[in-house]
Every structure is written in C-alpha cells, then in structure tokens.
C-alpha cells in the first residue's frame, strides 16, 4: 500500500511527547508516527501529510495546551471532511467532566486515556482504534494482521465476503 497511514501525537510537553512516541514504537513499521507540540503545528502537520497523499489513522492529543486546546483541535479535525475518519484519542491529566462530554459529543472522541498511562494500556487502545480504522476504511486487513487485532480482522474477512479469485 503506497498511501501511508500516520499516527499523530500532539503534546506540548516535550518529555511527555517523547514518552508517548517511544511507547508507540512497535507500530512505527506499519504506521509512521508524526508529532506536534501545539494545535497550530498539528494542523500544519496534518495538512502536509494529506498533501503528500498520505492520511491520518489515529490522533493522540493532549488536552491542555498553549493556544487552542486539545478538545477544540479534535473538534476542528472532526469537521474536516478529509480527516474526520481518523480515530481520535484524548490523552489528558486533568479534563473535567464537561470537557469530556463536549469532546465525545462534538469531536466524536473514540477513546480517552488518563495520564499517567501504562504502555500496555496505550498499546491496547491504539491497537483497537487502528483496527477500527482499517475496518471502517475497508482497507485490506491482511497486511495489518501482525500488528493489530488479528481475531477481529479475521472476523471482518469472514463476514465481508473477501473472495477467492
């Protein structure tokens, strides 16, 4: 597949961004990772990725950031035709209930990770969300069997009439 599916990590604290990216290393062979330190930078990165003919499969976004906050950024992504398919995960240390509800309603937030996270938890969420993405986009599931949720991908192949020719 020539069209690359990116994971975008948006986090303003550099140490935290680095930790997130490091924990996602195992996905990098299939889903290249890009990072941004602010919503504004993230928008530029998103634009560049699509301009290069690639796409974004998953956004992991911090909540409290200078400038536009994470929830608003995700809402903006959601309203964009091109990018609204991307799975959206809010990574946050301090969201109140109101913000979360807003994110779920308006950005159609797919998941919510509370800081501090564990590597297992993060991998589980990312695996599940990327699996959802691949199935929702009807991409060939076979090339992702080793990195994503193979049972769900097989079940998808069983029920989606992929045939023998």
């Amino acid at each position: 597949m020539d069209r690359k599916i990116f994971i975008l990590v948006v986090e303003d604290e550099l140490e935290v961004m680095e930790a997130l990216v490091n924990d996602l290393e195992q996905f990098e062979g299939y889903f290249p990772i890009e990072s941004a330190n602010s919503s504004e930078e993230a928008k530029q990165v998103v634009e560049d990725i699509y301009a290069a003919g690639n796409e974004i499969g998953l956004v992991l976004c911090d909540h409290v950031m200078p400038g536009q906050n994470g929830v608003d950024f995700l809402i903006e992504l959601q309203t964009n035709n091109q990018q609204h398919n991307a799975k959206k995960v809010l990574v946050t240390g301090q969201a109140g209930l109101e913000d979360t509800i807003q994110a779920i309603n308006n950005a159609q937030l797919d998941h919510y990770i509370a800081k501090p996270w564990t590597k297992e938890q993060l991998e589980e969420v990312v695996t599940a969300q990327l699996t959802n993405y691949i199935m929702a986009q009807r991409y060939n599931p076979m090339q992702y069997m080793m990195i994503l949720d193979s049972v769900r991908l097989l079940e998808y192949m069983r029920t989606h009439k992929i045939t023998d020719h």
């Binding site: 550099l14 290393e25 062979g29 990772i33 890009e34 990072s35 941004a36 930078e41």
Partner: peptide
Amino acid sequence: KPVSSTDIRTNMLQIQKQFPWVKERS
C-alpha cells in the same frame, strides 16, 4: 535537552541523508 517536534522533523530529513543505511523510522 528535549527537542521540539518541528526540530525533530527537520532533523529527520538531515539524518536520512547522514545515515542513509538506517531505514527504521523510529
């Protein structure tokens, strides 16, 4: 010191030239 994501992106292009044998993105 931690490096900002903008710098990482710029540096990555540089690294690809400097270490052409390194293929893994991570």
